[in-house]
Design a protein around this nucleic acid. Sequence first.
DNA 1: AAGAGGATGGCCT
DNA 2: GGCCATCCTCTTC
Length: 210
Amino acid sequence: MGHQRLTSAAGPLLPRGFFHRPALTVARDLLGVVIEHAGVAVRLTEVEAYDGANDPASHAYRGETARNAVMFGPPGHLYVYFTYGMHFCMNLVCQPEGTASAVLLRAGEVISGRDAAAKRRPGSTVRDLARGPARMCRALDIDRALNGVDVTRRTSVVTVRRGIPIGEDLVTTGPRVGIAEAADRPWRLWIAGEPTVSVYRPHVRRARRR
DNA sequence: AAGAGGATGGCCT
DNA sequence: GGCCATCCTCTTC
């Protein structure tokens, strides 16, 4: 486990306007941003953009449903979904109400609350505490109860704060992870050289159950 | 009412 | 590299 780093690079809350832009633009600016909940802070090193109705890989591509309703709401809200019967993943909603784009938070570096994160992810190395979308949710104790939370409010239980800006030379792009449709769009963004960036995995169709 | 498959992760060889 | 846990959601019948 080791000791806890007490320094935090987190600055002011991101304003609503930050999210009031296309997902790809927001995704780029989310690199280096700090998300905090339940005593743990994570500096984002890897994100993916999803462009709603124009993106076959987006949960919102076929229109609004009970699950994706938050994506169609105002920007700056958390969209949390449950997958594979055991994992949660989280997005930050972009664009004005009615436009369902979002950024999936894929990986980051735990910069404070390491012990709390390690307690939620026993056996994990420090590097792997938030290396992957479901791992990051676990480390931050994010689940369906937080679906729809407005992270731009100062009183929000989940906060998203400015970090140290990432230079253009470090921003890297590539295809998104684990999706069947529109896998060619290079809408996965990460910080070059960061050890917490997840390993790329292409989509594989699962065998039929019996 | 039923079936398919999932924006994953941990463990195995 | 492969396997598969586990349950929710959407699609189709």
